[in-house]
Design a binder for these strands. Structure first.
Length: 584
RNA sequence: GGUUCGGUAGUUCAGUUUGGUUAGAAUACGUGCCUGUCACGCACGGGGUCGCGGGUUCGAGUCCCGUCCGGACCGCCA
């Protein structure tokens, strides 16, 4: 037997037992007459003790063991002289009789410890070693627990987990597809699914009225800390439901997961319309852990010869409570922040409401004290506050001020990663106008149903039509989104027409779905949660990479296995693929 | 496609602003000493294509140009 116990379970109740343990050498401490060695496995660390006086031979063997060697030991569980309260097995140690080296190990390129000396890059290259470290290992275990609890809840709620194919058909809408050549069908390609969207709708037609799947999805777009080319969704669909049923069901899932995995309980999750989210936070995924909502002061600041405001479509401000003591340097810092091209503001105006009640602004030249008072009143400012104003085109200004708000929130430590503020954002617009191609695109996807009371706008002002679409946002991160789908053929035809599909295009790309809908499609809708993001947000971490066992880097590369890579000419020949000129 | 930060010992970094002797620190590693450590301690030691290519200069880790690689972000992600 290679082991009788793991390295995490022995305690005083096992005293004097003969045990066999196997694991990796974490580190050894050679004190001369004694050597201590930490043996590690997935479950923890157990201290092995060697005494030169009582057993010189085994003590010498122990001195020769290197870091990360895989060993098996036999010995006796003994109470320690000096205990270690920091680890579960800290009351005991093993007096070892026999060491068996199962495998030697090269010296690892970075230290396998909770706080490692290794940087991101080298740890990714040796990811299998990084996964030995507690912080990374615990993330993977956390993910496992979360997936089990998802399945528990969904199963209890009557959902069936059904797998859908990975080799499907490419559609031009939405994200870029990963494509896979078909050897048996030369010149033709599969696409990997961006989501099982159409399949889950077909399952509704089939009568599986509650479906879910924890499923890999693929999108060939540029990456971010919270975006990977392959990622995992909790994908769900329900038939014979309205929006309210879906929100309630998945509010229940969210509460269940937080309760079971984090032992955190929520009241009901608040709801906010898309329009309010944009008006108050300039963002369709607001972080509502803190207030600092936008105030529109456009109507009260114009006409004072301040050209920048006079020319602006919108002048919006936030109140940075208690920041009147910001130094000139700190304010310049914020100005630089909003002027970064990623944020895109051309400047920032501040009004400082000093503790003594006086006002100081960067636009004193244009605004009298009385003018400024009107602004401070409108913005609900009191002594000690700092008002920050941005102006310009409405959308750009909203975006920039939203960034600024989050930045101030971070600086004021209002974005506590141990606090969780979930939010439903509802009533998304159905369509989005794209300037470049001068046409409407579906904001969610082309099967999203419009709100019945807005259908009359479809012919006259389609941009105003709201959809039965909703997002779940936690701490400013979009965790999930979904909609009530269109299930009537006539309405679907109309939407495709609005999106610029000819009937032939629509038939070509989505014919299988539209045809299915002619055979008795029930009313249905669904939602999909980004599972990796849920893991990271619940853990208060920004990067989803930490929760994926083998993630890809910024350029979509797996630096461990060095993929993607070229393939042999023979493989290309079989697929009838000829490579064009590859840009330098 | 764009913005920005970085690449120096196995590893993490300092040194680059203002070019100048033999490129440092910590940690890891090796050797020795040490009987209660648990980030053990102490002493000694080995370890460098300063990402790569070119240029300026008497002289380049340091300045200039190019290039590759990595991180963060914008665009993109129905």
């Amino acid at each position: 037997m290679l082991r009788t116990h793991t390295c995490g379970e022995l305690n005083l109740s096992h005293l004097h037992q003969k045990v066999t343990l196997s694991g990796w050498v974490q580190r050894s401490r050679d004190l001369g007459g004694m050597t201590f060695l930490d043996l590690r496995d997935r479950y923890g660390i157990t201290q092995l003790a060697f005494n030169e006086e009582t057993n010189a031979d085994i003590c010498n063997q122990a001195r020769k063991l290197g870091r990360e060697w895989v060993i098996q030991v036999q010995g006796t569980v003994t109470e320690r002289f000096s205990k270690n309260k920091n680890i579960a097995t800290g009351d005991i140690e093993i007096i070892v009789d026999i060491i068996n080296v199962l495998n030697q190990a090269k010296l690892p390129p970075f230290t396998i410890e909770d706080i490692t000396d290794g940087g991101e890059e080298i740890r990714m290259k040796y990811r299998y070693l990084d996964l030995r470290r507690n912080p990374v290992k615990n993330n993977i275990i956390f993910r496992h627990k979360l997936s089990i609890e998802v399945r528990n809840y969904m199963n209890e709620a009557g959902f069936l987990e059904i797998e859908t194919p990975f080799l499907i058909k490419s559609t031009p809408e939405g994200a870029r597809d990963f494509i896979v050549p078909s050897r048996m069908n030369p010149g033709q390609f599969y696409a990997l699914p961006q989501s099982p969207q159409t399949f889950k709708q077909l399952l509704m037609v089939s009568g599986f009225d509650r479906y879910f799947q924890i499923v890999r999805c693929f999108r060939d777009e540029d990456l971010r800390a919270d975006r990977q080319p392959e990622f995992t969704q909790i994908d769900c669909e329900m038939a014979f439901v309205e929006q309210e049923d879906i929100l309630n069901t998945f509010e229940g899932l969210t509460k269940h997961l937080f309760k079971k995995v984090k032992n955190i309980e929520f009241d009901s999750i608040p709801r906010m319309t898309y329009a309010d989210a944009m008006r108050l936070y300039g963002n369709d995924k607001p972080d509502i852990r803190f207030e600092m909502t936008f105030v529109d002061i456009t109507s009260i600041v114009k006409g004072k010869e301040f050209k920048i405001f006079d020319d602006a479509e919108a002048i919006l401000g936030i109140n940075a409570n208690g920041c009147a003591n910001y130094t000139r340097k700190q304010i310049d810092d914020l100005t630089d922040f909003v002027k970064r091209p990623q944020v895109g503001a051309s400047g920032m105006v501040y009004i400082r409401f000093n503790e003594d009640g006086s006002l100081k602004s960067s636009v004193d030249k244009f605004y009298s004290e009385d003018d400024l008072r009107i602004i401070t009143e409108k913005m609900n400012a009191k002594a000690g506050d700092l008002l920050l104003l941005l102006s310009g085109k409405t959308e750009k200004t909203q975006k920039a001020l939203s960034e600024l708000r989050l930045e101030i929130g971070s600086r004021l430590k209002l974005r506590d990663s141990s606090k969780f503020a979930p939010l439903w954002v509802i009533d998304f617009p159905m369509l989005e106008w794209d300037e470049e191609t001068a046409r409407f695109y579906a904001k969610h996807h082309p099967f999203t149903s419009p709100k019945p009371e807005d259908i009359y706008l479809m012919d006259t002002n389609p941009g105003l039509v709201r959809a039965n679409a909703y997002d779940l946002v936690i701490n400013g991160v979009e965790i999930g989104g979904g909609s009530i789908r269109i299930f009537e053929k006539e309405l679907q035809r109309k939407i495709f027409n609005l999106l610029g599909f000819t009937p032939e295009d629509a038939q070509e790309q989505f014919g299988f779905l539209m045809n299915a809908f002619e055979f008795g499609a029930p009313p249905h809708g669904g939602i999909a949660f980004g599972f990796d993001r849920l893991c990271s947000v619940m853990s208060g971490v920004d990067s989803i990479r930490d929760f994926i066992a083998f993630p890809k880097n910024n350029n979509g590369r797996d630096v461990m296995i060095d993929a993607p890579a070229g393939v042999s000419q023979q493989q290309l020949n079989e697929l009838f693929i000829e490579l064009g000129k590859i840009p330098e």
